[in-house]
Simulated scan of single mutants.
Amino acid sequence: MTFNSALSAHLATGATTTCHCWAITRKDGTTLGFTDHDGPLAFDGIAFRADSGLSASALQQGTGLSVDNSDAIGALSDSAISEADVEAGRYDEAEVTAWMVNWSAPNERQVVFRGTIGEITRSGGAFRAELRGLAEILNRPQGRIYQKTCSAVLGNAACGLDLDQAAFRAETTATDIAESRVLTFATLSGYDDGWFTRGRLEVLDGPAVGLSAPIKRDWAEGALRCLELWSPLRADPGLGAMFRLDAGCDKRFQSCREKFGNGLNFQGFPDIPGEDWLMVPPSRSGSASGGSRR
């Protein structure tokens, strides 16, 4: 790591005025700043709060490919990090950047950690968040898998399908919400039963804005349409909230071709033999020459 030359000179004096600052950027674009200094600081367009109660344990960093981890510990409060936002998952996989800063001259600073938030635990009005370094991504499987089903995510670059079409995406409100998991709609005519099964629901406004969940089932009950989610939304969206529903994809070539008209971009191998192919018994023709049967 190459330190900021001005900060290095300051550290060399032996009488330092340094602190740490953290910037947390959530997936919804919200950025929050915190510092362990006794007063607020500001740089890079971010205001770092000193009254948040947030602190971090010593960073574990190495020069190799090992994962760098740390913990962020803080108190839950509505003015800083609220319990409702943590419970709703708004800080899951949020980006974290930490600096060592000369608080008397904030331009003298150095990034000492960059990564994401991992597991979050809550207890007694406080939270502990695992900070995962950039090397964490090396633990994720890479490359393609040879399989019959498609490996792409519907609508991503590999899939190439434009989901922003009325045939594949609907925006509407719910007439009933049970346990934040089963939703009833009155305005989904024109879509076949099961059209949204394996799809995705996203909340567009209200107290749960930005939250999403995969759809487990989609069925009709008379003139109404019901959707069941695999897991409840982590915040109550409330009646009147607008939802976006994306069509579901079962990853089969037939569905890719017939439901989405996207067969040319299918990212699976529909003709690959299944595992049972290895168990096919030998021919009973009596010939053991290895030639083809006629």
Score class of each variant (00 low, 15 high):
19 C>T: 15
19 C>W: 00
19 C>P: 01
20 H>G: 08
20 H>L: 11
21 C>N: 01
21 C>W: 00
21 C>D: 00
21 C>L: 02
22 W>L: 04
22 W>I: 05
22 W>F: 09
22 W>R: 01
22 W>D: 00
22 W>Y: 06
22 W>Q: 00
23 A>Q: 06
23 A>N: 02
24 I>L: 02
24 I>D: 00
25 T>S: 09
25 T>Y: 00
26 R>K: 08
26 R>S: 08
26 R>M: 03
26 R>A: 05
26 R>P: 00
27 K>D: 14
28 D>N: 14
28 D>R: 07
28 D>W: 06
28 D>P: 01
28 D>Y: 03
29 G>F: 01
29 G>S: 11
29 G>W: 01
29 G>D: 05
30 T>I: 13
31 T>N: 06
31 T>P: 08
31 T>F: 05
32 L>F: 03
32 L>A: 10
33 G>T: 08
33 G>L: 08
33 G>W: 03
34 F>Y: 13
34 F>N: 03
34 F>M: 08
34 F>S: 02
35 T>A: 10
35 T>V: 11
37 H>W: 14
37 H>C: 09
37 H>I: 03
37 H>G: 07
38 D>N: 14
38 D>S: 14
38 D>F: 12
38 D>K: 11
40 P>N: 11
40 P>C: 03
40 P>D: 11
41 L>N: 00
41 L>P: 00
41 L>I: 06
41 L>V: 06
42 A>V: 05
42 A>C: 06
42 A>S: 15
42 A>I: 05
42 A>Q: 13
43 F>A: 06
43 F>E: 04
43 F>G: 04
43 F>N: 04
44 D>W: 05
44 D>E: 15
45 G>W: 02
45 G>N: 06
45 G>E: 10
45 G>A: 08
46 I>T: 11
46 I>Y: 01
46 I>M: 02
46 I>G: 02
46 I>K: 00
47 A>M: 04
47 A>Q: 08
47 A>T: 14
47 A>R: 10
48 F>G: 00
48 F>C: 02
48 F>D: 00
49 R>Y: 08
49 R>P: 01
49 R>A: 14
50 A>T: 06
50 A>R: 05
51 D>Q: 09
52 S>T: 09
52 S>F: 03
52 S>D: 10
52 S>P: 05
54 L>N: 03
55 S>P: 01
55 S>G: 12
56 A>P: 02
56 A>H: 10
56 A>S: 15
57 S>W: 09
57 S>M: 07
58 A>V: 10
58 A>C: 02
58 A>F: 09
59 L>H: 07
60 Q>K: 13
61 Q>L: 11
61 Q>S: 13
61 Q>M: 13
62 G>S: 11
62 G>F: 08
62 G>C: 04
63 T>R: 09
63 T>D: 08
64 G>N: 14
64 G>S: 13
64 G>D: 15
65 L>E: 14
65 L>T: 12
65 L>R: 13
65 L>F: 15
66 S>H: 12
66 S>Q: 15
66 S>I: 05
66 S>L: 11
66 S>R: 12
67 V>A: 10
67 V>I: 15
67 V>G: 06
68 D>N: 15
68 D>M: 04
69 N>E: 13
69 N>Q: 09
69 N>H: 11
69 N>V: 06
70 S>L: 08
70 S>P: 04
71 D>V: 11
71 D>Y: 09
72 A>W: 05
72 A>G: 15
72 A>Y: 06
72 A>S: 12
73 I>L: 14
